[in-house]
Write a protein that binds this DNA or RNA. Structure first.
Lengths: 153, 153
DNA sequence: TCAAAGTCTACTAAATCGATGGACTAACTA
DNA sequence: TAGTTAGTCCATCGATTTAGTAGACTTTGA
């Protein structure tokens, strides 16, 4: 399970992607719209900023905004920032490899082999999904829902 | 990342699978062989037992053993027992679904759609990998390593 | 009956999670 | 330049989880 912090981060990013052309978004607005505790959200946004995903502007007219286009920010990036490596064991992480302290040969570790498969499958999905992709999916789902509604009338 | 507890559990299960025909295995032996703190291992084995994966025998000649053949115990089962649901968000869990408290429509939730993909990919691997499969992989890897060694002579 | 071996309850230290409060600083604007 | 707006930094908090440890208790086989 991902933490609430990570989930809030994803929600915030999707929200900022949706309002990409509107300039800086206030923490307060984001917190209200996505029902995230304001002070908690603040820490999340700082982390995303420190890792190059967001930028901010102080003072009146300030707020947070994506530092890149929604089509070049992925769920994988966000999750690694908030949650750490995607891998289930350190010895199969591509972005922050570490030897499993208690293990012998990696070549013949059965657990490692399985965990590597899981990591690769997960990373493929998360690194292949951009904020723009998610917006598109949401739009399609809403479209489909409206279609279903038409039939029910 | 999975917890050490879960990793210990997987190691213990693989070990018990390797010694499947040897009758009950002592906690002490398992702890020593796999370098797991004995008292900690005890709690892990109890959890696996309470969930039907292991059986035990008390007194002299006692110990722990798999309650089913290694080809019908999967990594997925073990990980769910130790770690909880495989899904990254409760609303996509098949084995212990729960509505995400802070979410609106599941049909149009972009985060959910991605997390569902990840869950399905992960579950496919973990539920498709039995202890017997892992033993076979290990044997193959050791075989390959010996082959490589021959070349290096 | 004795020793072997699992079982049960309790406890600990440290880290993480999910927040919250308040002082501080940068920037815009009247 | 004063005042307001809005992000920044720091500290704290209670609850839960993680990774273990200690010890008394019960079952079982010889």
């Amino acid at each position: 399970m991902i933490s609430k912090k990570t989930k809030y981060a994803l929600k915030a990013l999707v929200f900022l992607a949706r309002h990409y052309d509107r300039g800086p978004i206030l923490i307060a607005d984001l917190a209200r719209e996505e029902a995230i505790p304001k002070k908690f959200l603040e820490a999340i946004l700082v982390a995303l900023k420190n890792n190059g995903v967001l930028q901010s502007k102080k003072g009146k007219g300030g707020g947070y905004y994506l530092s890149r286009h929604p089509n070049s920010i992925t769920f994988g990036q966000a999750i690694r920032i908030m949650e750490g490596p995607i891998a289930l064991v350190p010895c199969v992480s591509e972005t922050s490899y570490a030897k499993c302290t208690e293990c012998g040969s990696e070549l013949t570790c059965g657990i490692r082999a399985v965990m590597k498969e899981v990591r690769d499958a997960t990373a493929k999905i998360l690194d292949g999904t951009t904020l723009a992709d998610v917006l598109e999916r949401i739009a399609n789902a809403e479209q489909a829902q409206r279609g279903a509604l038409d039939f029910s009338i």
